[in-house]
Simulated assay, not measured.
Amino acid sequence: MTIQTGAILQDVRQSAFAGKSVNSMRPYIGKDGKPYITVHTGGDRNDPKNYTKQLVANAALRYDEWRRLDDAVVIAGKQRLIGFEDLKRNGLVYTMNNAMASTVLTYERLSEAMEAEVNINPTRRTAGDAVDFETVHLPIPVVHSDFTLNDRLLQESRNRGDGLDTLNAAAAARRVSEKLEDMLFGASSSLTYGGGVIYTYLTEPNINTVSLSIDWDNSSMTSALLIADVMAMIQASINDLHYGPWMLYVPTAYQMVLAEDYSVSGASSQT
């Protein structure tokens, strides 16, 4: 017997199953040996009193084993989710009622329209105009990495009293995290489905590009050139009527360059 499962981050799972019981995907074996799921009955989700257990057809893991798996997945999955955490922190999240039941999100994009005029006679009519609507589709993918729990090893861990081995769960969660970050920062990982495309920061067709003076990890790089490059990025954004705030993401090779002294002329370091 093999128990097939997979790693999906907790916050992603909460969004995907909005309007349904998340715990319906996690049936557990109760102390009486019967299979249950935990059901939210309403009210504050952080209050244990607002939950009850419901009998289901079958289950493979105990309640504490599910908790151990969830902890391993969430901790490992959030280690390097820098870009996604920034999006959530800035409110750039759209919550669907039930994302698992939709493969494509359809919305309308509005065009620019209308002009204002300045004149003395208020009865003079301006040029008539109206916004145009364009239907746009956005794929709704599932990012997952499958792993298995062998029933024999599971029984062995219970007999010994050892905790459930979560190494595979943590490894799968890390792969999910890496794929999510690649979908955000990757150079060639755009996803096309259902007439829509998920672009990365680098493949989005409407980005503003700025050429660096030289690579930042080049030995000839100076603090003045680095600051000039960043100022050029900000200016390109302002020229396109985007006035910040801005977020600067750099590859690991550039990180130590940013930690160096920006001004070597003064007595104190400026980093």
Rank of each mutant, 00 (worst) to 15 (best):
N159S: 13
R160C: 06
G161F: 10
L164M: 12
D165A: 13
T166R: 04
T166D: 01
A170K: 01
A172L: 06
A172V: 04
V176L: 00
E178H: 10
E178A: 11
E181H: 03
D182F: 02
D182I: 06
L184V: 08
S189K: 11
L191T: 09
L191C: 02
L191K: 09
G194V: 09
T200A: 07
T200L: 08
T200G: 01
T200D: 06
T200M: 05
Y201R: 13
L202N: 12
L202F: 01
N206G: 09
I207E: 02
I207V: 15
N208V: 12
S211R: 15
L212A: 10
I214G: 05
I214V: 15
D215S: 13
W216C: 00
W216K: 00
W216L: 07
D217K: 08
N218F: 03
N218P: 05
M221P: 02
T222F: 05
A224L: 12
L225M: 15
L225S: 01
L226Q: 04
I227L: 15
V230P: 05
V230H: 02
M231H: 10
I234T: 01
I234R: 03
I238D: 07
I238P: 05
D240C: 05
D240L: 03
D240R: 10
L241S: 14
Y243E: 09
G244E: 06
P245R: 06
P245E: 01
W246P: 03
W246I: 08
L248I: 10
Y249H: 11
V250P: 01
V250Q: 06
T252Q: 15
A253V: 14
Q255T: 12
M256H: 13
M256V: 13
M256N: 15
V257H: 04
V257Q: 13
V257R: 15
V257L: 11
L258E: 04
L258C: 09
